[in-house]
Design a protein around this nucleic acid. Structure first.
Lengths: 178, 178
DNA sequence: CCCATCGTTCAAAACGTTTTGAATGTGCGC
DNA sequence: GCGCACATTCAAAACGTTTTGAACGATGGG
């Protein structure tokens, strides 16, 4: 194969691996996904293992993760016992899957915890000494900052997720920060 | 100290640690930052070490990281030999620091590499066999998808970063995806 | 129904990262 | 300047994560 093709393939696979790390996945998952992205044909576990020079066991486990994340789909080849995988090639669908099932939860959990903290501080106010009450006020202030950050993240996420392939910024024309 | 205050403090510190992990920092850095955020007074290295129950050495190194990232500032206390630190409490300033000096580079690097790949494939076109040329076309297609993702990320970043504390979505009223 | 071929599992090993604490460096107050 | 109280450094250890490969399990073809 021509040098340019292998060079491009290598750097793309490496880059997707890096991207995967950034999104909190293992690098191997990213490399597998990148490899599949650049393959016009579905690939078997053995193809992937030998292509990336990693063990078959690792490929097996990581591919199941990719499948659960909606990043790869099994492809049935008739007259074949091997499992074949193809990348979910609608990249934006993948992004939305991830944002929806992970980041969204994360943000909601954070907002929930912050809300509980505020509530807890307000409920306890009566039982606090003057000094403690002052500290509580300080806490409320700082926690408010955290809240506004997560609220912004929430809006940003919902803006991307609510769409059907288009990001619509009309709904959030101007968001105040701080 | 009242139970509610310590409970809120603990969960906030833990939460900021989690947030730090998400942003690719060490959890300890996040916990240190969270501790400082909730402290009305600047804290010494010893205060932090005993508060979080980690070694003084770790505190020293991690605080310097926080300082480099603009997340904490040294506070000089006259008549004191200790170093005191306070959190940079403008949370949005911190976010902008991080996005600006890390994520921005990351996105630009990615776009650069992708551009090089496209160029390389185009330059090599003449030397390719029919089959190779077909594969190259396929590569260009997939790489184009990656490009559009990173371009979106770039616009999103610049939208947040360009502002002076306000996110202005007017410039990007509607972005096509895919 | 058995064999061959593949997929899956998981314990051990390899690996990378983080933490520690002792040794060393530094600078302020006297 | 000296000494002391602190900060910094870094090699070793602890720790968590990832990878491997061999054992086991499943499944389709003959």
């Amino acid at each position: 194969m021509h040098e340019s093709l292998t060079a491009v393939s290598n750097s793309t696979v490496a880059g997707v691996g890096r991207l995967a790390r950034f999104f909190g996945f293992s690098e191997v998952m990213g490399r597998l996904y990148g490899t599949l992205l650049l393959s016009p044909e579905a690939m078997s576990l053995d193809d992937l293992a030998s292509g990336l020079k990693i063990s078959k066991g690792s490929v097996s486990m990581n591919m199941r993760s990719l499948e659960r994340w909606g990043m790869a789909k099994e492809v049935w080849m008739r007259g074949e016992r091997k499992k074949y995988y193809a990348a979910e090639s609608d990249f934006w669908q993948v992004i939305r899957n991830v944002l929806n099932s992970r980041e969204r939860r994360e943000v909601q959990l954070a907002l929930h915890v912050l809300g509980e903290s505020i509530e807890k501080l307000q409920l306890a106010e009566g039982e606090l000494s003057d000094e403690e009450r002052q500290l509580a006020t300080f806490y409320l202030d700082r926690i408010g900052d955290l809240q506004s950050f997560f609220r912004f993240a929430q809006i940003a996420l919902e803006t991307v997720l609510g769409s059907d392939g288009t990001v619509d910024f009309e709904a959030v024309t101007k968001i105040e920060i701080g």
